[in-house]
């Protein structure tokens, strides 16, 4: 029987969370003559188009209903408001990015750690689960005041707030992923004589990749919100959130909208970065044939196939 007579079946389309970034490539059958241009057009073009349409809608509503600029500006006015004051805004944007990234990193690592130990030790799972749920029931705003008292007006309270929001979806999804790993596969690893840690790294982690990234993506969308809440509640002087409050009290509505756009842009960029990382790290979800590896197989490539024995 010739293996080639059996055309490879298409990879099953994978279920994705939120944006469909990159998933279209996975539906292309092996060797299909589909231009890279079309893939890019689908994966980047359509989301960009939908953003443009959103702007058009915004413009249409403001113009169509004769809304006064101090109630709601037009998109271009909001845009000009931020470009006009860019030298003031840029350091504030950097500050918010820093809080978001640090907080996300801390939250993601904590979430991973908690997810792993809770999946491993049922006792800890029963102990910690209610505490974790409780932590999310606390209104975040109510958390800010004591955090400032303890940590002061530094970047730390904002990082803590972001991490507080981010770790939860990560923990829940990691736990979920790890507890749904095929036990037959784990048994097979045992039959091979695999040590526990190798089975963890080689099977449990990659098998949970989709869940882990779901948690990270949810966390990523909330991270900027957390940073802004932190800035509102625990800022002594300059921050993006305070800049917006200031613009609001000056009735500079265009700047208020512009700042919101900036915050949203930070959030979306961070989310896209996480999605991009997932796309890079989980090629099997989109491809039916692996790319040539960059680092491996170098030395073995010197040995012709079949020459050894």
């Amino acid at each position: 029987m010739s293996a080639r007579s059996n055309p490879p079946s298409r990879p099953r389309p994978t279920k994705r969370f939120l944006f469909q970034v990159g998933s279209d490539a996975g539906r292309a059958p092996t060797g299909a003559k589909r231009g890279i241009g079309r893939t890019v057009a689908r994966n980047v073009g359509i989301p960009v188009l939908s953003l443009v349409l959103l702007m058009v809608l915004w413009q249409g509503i403001v113009v169509g209903f004769h809304i006064a600029p101090y109630i709601a500006p037009r998109p271009l006015q909001a845009f000009q408001a931020i470009t006009g004051d860019w030298s003031t805004l840029w350091p504030l944007v950097l500050g918010t990015i820093r809080e978001t990234v640090y907080g996300f990193a801390v939250g993601a690592l904590l979430g991973l750690f908690l997810g792993v130990i809770m999946a491993r030790v049922p006792f800890l799972q029963r102990m910690l689960y209610p505490v974790l749920v409780l932590s999310q029931a606390v209104p975040i705003i109510a958390l800010a005041a004591p955090l400032v008292l303890i940590l002061g007006f530094s970047v730390t309270p904002k990082v803590v707030i972001v991490a507080w929001i981010v770790f939860f979806p990560v923990t829940v999804n990691v736990l979920d992923g790890l507890s749904h790993v095929d036990q037959d596969l784990m048994n097979l690893a045992k039959v091979y004589g695999a040590p526990r840690w190798r089975a963890f790294l080689q099977i449990e982690i990659p098998a949970s990749a989709t869940s882990i990234f779901s948690g990270l993506k949810i966390g990523a969308t909330y991270a900027v919100t957390g940073a802004i809440i932190g800035e509102l509640a625990a800022s002594d002087g300059s921050s993006l959130a305070l800049y917006q409050e200031h613009a609001n009290s000056n009735l500079n509505t265009a700047a208020v909208y512009g700042t919101t756009m900036l915050m949203t842009a930070i959030g979306i960029s961070w989310f896209l970065l996480v999605v991009g990382t997932e796309v890079l790290l989980t090629p099997w979800q989109r491809r039916s044939v692996a790319r040539k590896p960059l680092f491996r197989h170098r030395q073995s490539a010197l040995t012709p196939v079949g020459a050894e024995n």
């Binding site: 029987m1 010739s2 293996a3 080639r4 490879p8 079946s9 298409r10 990879p11 099953r12 092996t30 099997w284 491809r287 039916s288 044939v289 692996a290 197989h297 030395q299 073995s300 040995t303 196939v305 079949g306 020459a307 050894e308 024995n309």
Partner: peptide, 27 residues
């Protein structure tokens, strides 16, 4: 490298030589 070349040899010998770089979802 030996493990890998053995895998390639055995796959080639038993009719899967063209699928070494495929993911299982394509089989």
């Amino acid at each position: 490298a030996n493990d890998r070349s053995e895998a390639r040899r055995i796959a080639t010998q038993y009719g899967l030589g063209d699928f070494l770089r495929h993911y299982p979802s394509a089989l």
